[in-house]
Nucleic acid binder design. Sequence first.
DNA 1: TATCATCGCTACGAAACCGTTTCGTTGCGA
DNA 2: TCGCAACGAAACGGTTTCGTAGCGATGATA
Lengths: 190, 190
Amino acid sequence: MSDTPSPRAARSRERLLRAATDLLVESGPRGVTVDAVAEASGVAKSTLYRQWSSRDDMLIDVVRCNIPALTQPNLTDGFESALRWYVNDGAATLADPEWSRIIPAMMSLQVTMPAVAACIEIDRTSKTATLRTIVDLGIEEGILPADIDVEMASRILFGPLVYSSLLGDQDQLDKLAVEVVDRFLAPYAV
Amino acid sequence: MSDTPSPRAARSRERLLRAATDLLVESGPRGVTVDAVAEASGVAKSTLYRQWSSRDDMLIDVVRCNIPALTQPNLTDGFESALRWYVNDGAATLADPEWSRIIPAMMSLQVTMPAVAACIEIDRTSKTATLRTIVDLGIEEGILPADIDVEMASRILFGPLVYSSLLGDQDQLDKLAVEVVDRFLAPYAV
DNA sequence: TATCATCGCTACGAAACCGTTTCGTTGCGA
DNA sequence: TCGCAACGAAACGGTTTCGTAGCGATGATA
């Protein structure tokens, strides 16, 4: 059932993924050619085709492996603490220059490659579910109204961060994160 | 000094730009090949090369010609009216399925093609200046504090809209626009 | 209607790219 | 230490792409 991932194969795979990611960041999807990845990684094309059946398969894997996983928020310190923690974590992720340079490529690939869109969809579903647990805590604490729209909250909280990152301003994301949460919570303050 | 744009040349140019835009929307930057544009437009490759010196030149022009111009807001009806009008206009633009599918391609091209980045930069500077005039009116009316950060306001107002558009939810952008402005104005309400 | 710049069509060469295969080598686990 | 699995290097054929060139047709303009 579980195929043993030979240590050698795993190492080659890592190198290929690393090189492909770099090429994607530097040159966009167009730069991620089989030959370029092979040369940049120091791994032969034949080995690349032992890992993936096609260039597109590889590209999908590159995207999949580069979607960052946010850490699960600690709910024991209460709603506001958890929310601030989660949004700050998102801002920190977006502030990573490498990740922020991959986003545009992913957004572009999403349109033409359904598999990439699926990866992003899965990730977003998971992140929305996490936000859902935080919001539920807020409702439980009587801070948020019970009928609050989690999707809209997600847009209002993370939209400015993603937008700012896309525009190339990663420097003040942490400040923006604080501002965004402040404004989000303001209407519900006692 | 101004070279007369022959009617035939202008017509060919329009057809080429139209076809290239369609290809960009449907297949991403990778689909915008010289041959594909020529075939889809019914215009010969040689004519394409009479318009632009290279495929990249053409692609840059496609981007440039597809950046939408927001209508100038009417300032005579007061700050809040102008702001709502401007944000709603932005939401309407983002809701256009064609435009929303071009955005990812532009974000991607921006990384690898400095000329595309320059186009986007110019557009954003102009739009920020417009928002600046609206914000100034708000300050004049005593609604906004004088030290408000226009860049941050722009992120808070348009971030959720762009983010939502990128995620493929164009249906409720108008509703989101209202929510965003409501929340933006709430802290300054009397 | 005559003229001529412009056009569409077609073909072409060079280069890049993709996917596959072969063959000899290397390194890991039994 | 032995054997198998993974590896690198290289070559191959077919396709795509870019950019150029020649040539006959066409349409704007006088």
